[in-house]
Amino acid sequence: MIRKSPKLAGVDAAAVIKEALQRIDVPSRRKFLQSSLTLGGLSLLTGCSLVEAGGIEKALMKISRFNDAAQAWLFDPSRLAPTYPESMITRPFPFNAYYGADKIRQVDADSYRLEVTGLVADKHAWTLDELRALPQTDQVTRHICVEGWSAIGKWGGVTFSSFLARIGADTSAKYVGFKCADDYYTSIDMPTALHPQTQLTLSYDGATLPPKYGFPMKLRMPTKLGYKNPKHIQAIFVTNTYPGGFWEDQGYNWFGGI
């Protein structure tokens, strides 16, 4: 099961759903289950017929796309997320993923290569040592999970905008996508990719980023919800084609800004 921070009592609904989704691999079945679950709430509310429910789900997805646009409009590229003193760091910082702590991926540091593809000038794959040799910065910021809880942590690494400049990324492109060693994937908008606090994270709390927080590298964005911050990143690509995401494809809002 997902380990939560100690103050969160009881069984966690989102964790249960996560586990259930893991077990239900057939997409059609997953879709059916989700539809019927939503339907339960729906019929409770309005007594709508089964046929209409598909329409309601589509309408909700459309509103979610509208909310993406609203958030892109609200997003101020120069507005910084609040930072905190180190004394406020949440200890232990909660582990969270779509799988349990027993399934945390172990990535081999020596054979690790970060692939960079898409609309970039320099497509060479990066070793961990090369990434560590780049200028590093620290941030103590609040991580806010879509489940509602939040925790303050300290992340260190390379400012993502400087990395994008280094690889000659086309910053007029719409999206930056991420593929991860734990089969997670997600994508973000270019303005957030260029935000000064968006960081290619290599360390946590002054030490090498441990596997539970995404060794060897994660993307840290204090301007987005937790599920937008991919761990164990293996490939980064710049694109104008909407890449979606693991949770986003199931209904979480794509922009996921805070």
């Binding site: 609904a13 989102a14 759903i17 989700q34 019927s36 679950l37 939503t38 339907l39 339960g40 709430g41 729906l42 409770l44 509310l45 909700l60 997805m61 509103i63 979610s64 879509v146 489940e147 949770w247 199931q250 209904g251 979480y252 809002n253």
Partner: peptide, 10 residues
């Protein structure tokens, strides 16, 4: 309402 967290948020 919503069936799961993602649905409820929508």
């Amino acid at each position: 309402l919503g069936g799961w967290l993602g649905g409820a948020i929508q």
